[in-house]
Design a protein around this nucleic acid. Sequence first.
DNA 1: ACAAAAATTAGAATTATTCCAATTATGGCT
DNA 2: AGCCATAATTGGAATAATTCTAATTTTTGT
Lengths: 142, 142
Amino acid sequence: MRLEPQYKKLLNNALEGSGQRATKQREHIFALLLEKRDHPTADEVYARARADMPTISLATVYNCLETLVETKLIRQVNFEREPTRYCPNLTQHAHFYCRESGEIVDIELSDQLVDELMKVLPKGFSAQHIDIAYDGKCNCCS
Amino acid sequence: MRLEPQYKKLLNNALEGSGQRATKQREHIFALLLEKRDHPTADEVYARARADMPTISLATVYNCLETLVETKLIRQVNFEREPTRYCPNLTQHAHFYCRESGEIVDIELSDQLVDELMKVLPKGFSAQHIDIAYDGKCNCCS
DNA sequence: ACAAAAATTAGAATTATTCCAATTATGGCT
DNA sequence: AGCCATAATTGGAATAATTCTAATTTTTGT
């Protein structure tokens, strides 16, 4: 697994921009998230990370994920009380959680729709972020 | 604190409908959620419940809340990794979380908007529920 | 009032995550 | 290239919300 130059640059810029250092671990975790673009938990990331980097610790995985979230290179995804998941898709999207298969699917959202959602806020409210989570049955399960 | 007859009937029907029993504890917790219509955590519910029912246990509070959620008399609300909160507002609404004050405000959603959100799902997907969480600054804090 | 089933209780267990203190790695500067 | 200050990693302990467990109590139907 290797991080493509464009993403390596993205990562380095993002880290530098917030006064943080580039490390093997951060790069490795970013790379594995980009490689398989699903929504793994920290434990799953830990398992994948150890395949190529057996000495990495779980604490570091948590630290790296936190850093990547802070620098806005990945997103956190939460469903109810389940373990937090991590998502490398940075486009504007919602998440669909299939109760049957457990799969999580990204649902693209138009600017227009997000705009409408912003407009329903009462006066004086300003949102930095809207989190939209569907749950039900996905196409494979219905 | 007393549960108004209309709500008592609602509770009893809902419980009966799912083969569960009416208990002092369930009634008490439902009543206190309806009395102060905010978004307390289980711990906060526990604290409020003990004011009038000092022997209630935390486990029971969790059990009752779970029962009320199952019977759809209240809703669960989750923000990131924070403790689950409980909401007696059953109308269609989203939640706004103010990062400044920590306050949670209900945002009413029109059928039309919810409809549009449903329409953006790809073919074959069907959602039972959409969870929408805004976060930013509320009117008091901006 | 009696028995069966369900709910409550207190405390132990679990699980995801964070904290801590010691070690190691990184990046800037000479 | 080597040194230093700072930041990151590490392993294990600690935390916090929630769930589980087994014993007791309550509820409901007869």
